[in-house]
Design a protein around this nucleic acid. Structure first.
Lengths: 153, 153
DNA sequence: GGGTATTGGTTGAAAATGTAACTAACAAGC
DNA sequence: GCTTGTTAGTTACATTTTCAACCAATACCC
């Protein structure tokens, strides 16, 4: 019984605390300015950055559960940020596309995100920042059992 | 407009993906074996590792909102894992203490957590692991505007 | 062609969270 | 003592998330 195993030695705990910290901060941008939820912001970003795609595509890329995406797309549609057009070749799926104002919101938020990231990273040396990112990517990618409903981020 | 600012360059996103990844995995332990929620596991850990304390104490240490703690303590009480006794000197507060089975669950889960952490850390070099932890701690601690209701982790 | 399975996506109910309002106990000022 | 303010913790309600069931379209297969 490692009697000195501390909660602050527990990587999942540290990851959660750090993630929570920055998420709450950045939330101000998309929530405060556009009344978006985190999933909406993610979907918006995906469409803005990677182009038109279906809900399933987004789910695969972002590891988001389809119900979350469905609801986020509905909300973004209500805000007139995305436009949905049924694919004539496979009428089950819809191609999602940002509207003009959706693109504007994306540009605005992407710039804010970039600035936020720069500022966040500034507290670390170049090496630290590089290692941090590499480690996080590795953890996120580790044995991805399968795509599962991820709690939004 | 940094046109190549990618979602996977966005530290909050990486943090969330990584945190989510490991949280979902470790959940198996406390949820599968004891039907606990994340907050319950955290409260249990605090009491087991740091000794008896009040709900407010836990909130301060763990950055958990008091309503979450209240509900977690109720749940842990129902499972007979914690015992609550009113402080005679200040009858507003209750001192929380693990029961025998609460301590057993704590030992079990703490061991699992430690093992999980060791395995997770094994994929990194000693230097990487050290930097990763240091960075996370720094991010979590960064201008803690104040204790706020943190989304459970 | 007709059955069965799979896939894309939505919906409803249950569980969990966040927010604010609340009760009870203490503390301070007068 | 009485009023006012603060602290510990609970509860109620609205918002989100999760889970499973669902519909519709396509694919598979004989």
């Amino acid at each position: 019984m490692d009697h000195d195993f501390d909660l602050s030695d527990f990587l999942p705990y540290l990851l959660n605390q750090a993630a929570e910290r920055v998420s709450v901060d950045f939330q101000r941008e998309y929530k405060g300015r556009y009344g978006m939820l985190r999933t909406e912001w993610r979907v918006l970003f995906h469409l803005g950055r990677y182009g038109d795609m279906t809900a399933t595509d987004i789910g695969r890329r972002a590891s988001l559960h389809k119900t979350k995406i469905s609801r986020a797309v509905t909300a973004l549609g209500a805000k007139r940020f995305v436009d949905r057009t049924q694919d004539p070749d496979d009428r089950r799926q819809e191609v999602l596309r940002l509207t003009r104002s959706g693109r504007a919101a994306f540009r605005d938020l992407a710039a804010a995100a970039h600035g936020f990231d720069v500022q966040l990273t500034a507290q670390f040396s170049a090496t630290e920042a590089k290692i941090l990112r590499a480690c996080l990517i590795r953890i996120a990618a580790s044995h991805p059992d399968q795509v599962r409903g991820v709690s939004d981020g």
